[in-house]
């Protein structure tokens, strides 16, 4: 669904106002924009650049520096596989491989064709006691196996088909 341009910028304006258009608040501003649009659209970043008086290159620099920011749309469901030390020694790699195979993803391609899933690997979720851990849409699942992970994905797929 296409969002009308005017209302699209309305929300950025609200976010900018909340931070008093303070250039030092660039990171919280970008975080809120991403929460709103699920990624950082180019035209919005240009707009922010003008509003804050920071060059577009500086904003692009910040947006690409932090791994939390993304410049392309993400899938509807976000799967985060923890690849911290504890999860790694408990074979988190096998989970990543299983998901990549199931969704047809690769090192470069992290979002599935149907835009249903995005796979992210994170350095450590701090849930080491539950290693290996997977976070699906902000819910943490501990002691995962490839089978259990695929079950989660298939459940969501099935629900999508129904609706």
């Amino acid at each position: 669904m296409q969002i009308p341009i005017a209302s699209k910028f309305d929300r950025v304006c609200q976010i900018l106002e909340r931070h008093q258009r303070n250039p030092h608040k660039l990171i919280p501003i970008l975080q809120e924009i991403q929460a709103e649009y699920h990624y950082l659209p180019e035209e919005i970043m240009t707009f922010v650049s003008t509003a804050l008086g920071i060059s577009t290159s500086a904003i692009y620099g910040v947006a690409t520096f932090y791994s939390h920011f993304t410049l392309s749309p993400k899938g509807k469901n976000i799967i985060k596989v923890c690849d911290g030390t504890a999860c790694h020694v408990k074979k988190s790699e096998s989970l990543i491989q299983a998901i990549e195979k199931e969704l047809g993803l690769s090192n470069k391609k992290r979002t599935s064709e149907d835009l249903l899933f995005t796979l992210e690997t994170v350095a450590c979720l701090g849930a080491c006691g539950l290693a290996p851990a997977v976070v699906l849409n902000d819910k943490v699942y501990g002691f995962m196996t490839p089978e259990k992970t695929l079950e989660l994905i298939r459940d969501i797929k099935a629900k999508e088909v129904q609706s």
Binding site: D83, G84, H88, A123, C124, G126, C128
Partner: peptide
């Protein structure tokens, strides 16, 4: 900003 993989005491 506890980023060390395998550490979660600050959390």
């Amino acid at each position: 900003d506890e980023g060390d993989p395998g550490a979660f005491m600050d959390r």
